[in-house]
Design a binder for these strands. Structure first.
Length: 601
DNA sequence: GTAGGGTTAG
């Protein structure tokens, strides 16, 4: 309908500018790319053509800039380019990146002649959007439509297997790749490797890794991560030494693996130190991220001084570094130090966030600094503009409850913007707030509220984790559940517990059964089972199997109960033992009949 | 010109 025009004169081509645009749009910073693009739209008379939109959409995908991408989609339609398969594929990928799977899928379905990239874009969108089943269904759909999958397809499919932890199907995919002679490049090998590790095909992973001729950081990191997660720290160290270069991701993989592993908090301390020394030796730049991980690791392993060393060595400290150190001090009952550090943070003009407040409130909560806690709580919003969240309300309620200010605690609960019935919606996986509220209600005798809360928990299918304690003896981690008699030395452990009980009785100790919190957390237990809590089993095992000079280090997944706390204090005196007990919230250091937490268990 | 792998702090 239009007469022919030279390309540079047509409003629908940017051909003269394309090389320049491409250069700008491949800029590592997509914001810059988009700004340059928008500037060009304003300044030149040419309208972007079909070769430019994929670049532009890519930049929007990288930024997850939904509204910007929507505008581009509109421009595509206006320019009658909405049947171009390249642009459609980019749009599918764009909507997927923004997490809108419905829009992505709707568009995908409307692509008249889908090519393999269309399928791959949609498969990737499903995998990255947390819907691996959809990805696998599409893979089957491709077969039906006779579209031949390529190596990129297989990366997506393997990624879906990894998300589903489906080793069997993952293995089938690997054999499919072989049968169909799909070219296996480094990326695909790495995807296979990751799938094997994450799905538990450890031997397959090792075999594949040994067979690989070419390896990069994406091949090494899963190996490192795999061994560290398995607790095979010697192997992890070998892998690390063999790595041609160790980047920040590798370090983080290693450090976060320790934290997720229960034994990490007990026995991996040596490796943790080694990691730190290695980082220093290699002259790796300790960024704030890594610094935070190290501080966290040291405090979780019980070495506050080492954490302090890291903290003070930092030239620049962001809010994460400060918060981690404050949290670490709180965890160890170093209340003054935690509060002083918070003041220093304010002096350093670092703006506290909600986590900082939670941590500093925890320091008050653990050790009964009721006035400081109250002041901070009310300053938080007024002075610092941090909005209260349920976690911090919980801390404040805890402070008041522990100090016997039950009326004030109840008042605060009533005033909470989120009523107790809404707590589940806020944080469905966390029943800590329930336990706390139950505890408060129980203390003031509001039993109807307690049973009401328990009903909500039961109805919502909130599973109570069973209490479990671990102890490392001679490099082996032993785990105990409450009332457990699976351990080979079970008989000896129970006779040690009997001995402990009679020695405690002889000095006039009466078991404390009033710890309702624990009855709620471990409610399968009856009162008479109080003496069988997992931490007591672990401590008894430590006493019979370790040299008297060695401190007994126990890690419990839940909060330690009041009776166990009192008993452990007495054991530390009667048996002249140093006992370190790490529970879900804090680090108790028992020595000579005292705990670093005093009477605040 | 479009699609792909590890890490992501309290």
């Amino acid at each position: 309908m239009h007469q022919y025009k030279a390309p540079q004169a047509s409003p629908y081509t940017d051909a003269p500018y394309r090389p320049l645009l491409r250069l700008f749009l491949s800029h590592p910073n997509p914001t810059q790319s988009l700004l340059i693009f928008l500037q060009m739209l304003h300044q030149c008379e040419h309208f972007p053509d079909k070769f430019t939109f994929p670049f532009v959409l890519n930049a929007a995908s990288g930024l997850k800039a939904f509204r910007v991408g929507r505008v581009f989609h509109g421009m595509v339609i206006k320019a009658s380019l909405s049947s171009d398969v390249f642009i459609l594929n980019s749009l599918v990928y764009f909507y997927g990146s923004c997490g809108d799977l419905d829009l992505a899928y709707g568009l995908f379905m409307k692509i008249p002649r889908k090519d393999v990239v269309s399928w791959n874009s949609m498969i990737t969108a499903f995998v990255q959007g947390g819907y691996p089943e959809g990805a696998l269904e599409l893979f089957r759909g491709m077969e039906k439509e006779n579209v031949k999958p390529n190596d990129v397809t297989m990366v997506g499919v393997l990624s879906a297997c990894t998300k589903k932890l489906d080793l069997e199907f993952g293995r089938w995919v690997c054999s499919y790749i072989e049968r169909n002679e799909i070219s296996v490049n480094l990326t695909l090998s790495n995807a296979m490797l990751d799938m094997y590790w994450k799905c538990g095909g450890i031997e397959d992973a090792k075999r594949l890794f040994d067979k690989m001729l070419e390896k990069d950081i994406f091949s090494w990191t899963p190996m490192l991560d795999g061994y560290a997660t398995l607790g095979e720290y010697d192997e992890a160290r070998h892998v690390f030494d063999a790595m041609p270069c160790q980047d920040i991701a590798a370090w983080n993989a290693l450090i976060s693996a320790y934290e997720q592993n229960a034994s990490a908090q007990l026995g991996a301390m040596d490796l943790g130190r080694w990691v730190h020394v290695y980082i220093e030796k290699q002259g790796i730049n300790l960024n704030c991220h890594l610094m935070t991980s190290l501080i966290d690791m040291y405090t979780k392993c019980g070495d506050v001084e080492k954490a302090f060393e890291v903290f003070y060595s930092a030239e620049r400290k962001d809010v994460f570094v400060w918060s981690a150190m404050i949290g670490g001090l709180a965890m160890h009952g170093r209340r003054r130090a935690a509060i002083d550090l918070f003041s220093k943070m304010l002096e350093a003009k670092v703006k506290p966030n909600s986590v900082t407040f939670t941590n500093v409130l925890c320091a008050c909560s653990h050790t009964g600094l009721v006035n400081e806690g109250r002041t901070l709580f009310y300053q938080m919003e007024l002075v610092h503009g941090v909005v209260s969240e349920d976690k911090r309300y919980a801390c404040m309620v805890d402070i008041l409850g522990r100090s016997g200010l039950l009326e004030e605690a109840v008042e605060l609960i009533e005033k909470m913007p989120m009523a107790s019935s809404r707590l589940l919606e806020l944080d469905p996986g966390n029943h800590g707030a329930y336990v706390l509220l139950s505890n408060i209600y129980a203390k003031i005798g509001k039993w109807d509220r307690v049973s009401g809360l328990r009903k909500v928990m039961r109805d919502s299918g909130l599973k109570k984790e069973p209490g479990c304690s671990s102890i490392e003896v001679n490099g082996i981690v032993h785990e105990f559940l409450a009332g457990d008699n699976c351990h080979p030395l079970s008989k000896e452990i129970y006779s040690k517990l009997d001995e402990i009980a009679s020695r405690l009785k002889s000095i006039g100790y009466v078991p404390n059964k009033s710890h309702l919190l624990q009855l709620i957390e471990e409610d399968n237990m009856k009162d008479h089972a109080l003496s069988l809590h997992s931490e007591k089993l672990a401590i008894a095992f430590g006493l019979i199997s370790m040299a008297p000079s060695q401190p007994v280090r126990v890690v419990k997944n839940l909060r330690v109960c009041g009776d166990c706390h009192s008993v452990t204090k007495l054991i530390s005196k009667l048996y002249v033992r140093e006992i370190l007990l790490k529970d879900r919230y804090r680090f108790h250091h028992f020595r000579g009949g005292h705990c670093s937490y005093m009477d605040y268990w």
